[in-house]
């Protein structure tokens, strides 16, 4: 790094230092082997993801402080700005701290038609968050508006950290948030109990087809 003094961005919670821990280092060693020498910059997305997950382990908040991005840049021999560009481009990297439970509500057309507005309203009511991108006063929840999560068959979708909760409505959103508050997240998937994206209430086609017997 040449030069002039850097003004550290006034992001609340910016840690004093960042270094990859043993778990991340083990993963980095595997990732970097995938790329030929001199092409290590290709690993920038994977390393940023590792850094964000390490922050989650260490602080409970999955986000990328500037120091973490600088660490990734130094490790991959990239100018830091190239890493900032990538990290700010992709929505799954958080450049500000997020709550313990990151509520990512899909509001794209299919989810919206199936009632995502109610999911949003319920999340707001239950957490006290007023606008997208905010974190609740207790630091437990951050709510973000996201574009299509690719699970429209089970719309509306509420993604919590890495897991999809599907077929949400007011009641199931309230139950989910209450469970998260008690640190007992329910198993991800449909909240109406249907299997994957099978029709609600059982099969509607191929109903007469004989079940194959075991061993066939």
């Amino acid at each position: 790094m040449s030069g002039n003094q850097r003004e550290i961005q006034a992001v609340h919670g910016e840690p004093a230092s960042f270094a990859f821990d043993a778990e991340s280092e083990a993963a980095i060693a595997i990732i970097l082997k995938k790329y030929p020498t001199g092409r290590q910059a290709s690993a920038v997305l994977a390393l940023l993801d590792l850094a964000q997950r390490q922050m989650k382990r260490a602080t409970g908040s999955a986000w990328l402080p500037r120091l973490a991005m600088d660490t990734v840049a130094a490790r991959l021999g990239m100018p830091p700005i190239r890493v900032y560009e990538v990290a700010t481009f992709y929505f799954m990297f958080n450049t500000k701290p997020v709550g313990k439970w990151h509520l990512q509500v899909c509001t794209t057309t299919p989810c919206w038609l199936r009632g995502s507005d109610e999911v949003v309203a319920t999340c707001k009511r239950a957490t006290g968050i007023e606008h997208f991108g905010e974190t609740s006063a207790d630091g437990l929840f951050t709510m973000t508006e996201v574009e299509c999560l690719g699970a429209c068959v089970n719309a509306p979708i509420l993604q919590v950290n890495d897991d999809f909760y599907e077929d949400m409505d007011v009641a199931s959103t309230e139950r989910l948030l209450a469970a998260l508050r008690h640190d007992t997240p329910p198993p991800p998937g449909s909240m109406t109990g249907r299997q994957a994206s099978a029709p609600e209430g059982g099969p509607t086609t191929l109903t007469t087809l004989a079940q194959p017997s075991a061993g066939e």
Binding site: G3, N4, R6, E7, Q9, R66, P80, T88
Partner: peptide, 9 residues
């Protein structure tokens, strides 16, 4: 921009 506030060196 430079993301972090800095003069262009």
């Amino acid at each position: 921009g430079t993301y972090v506030e800095r003069a262009l060196s």
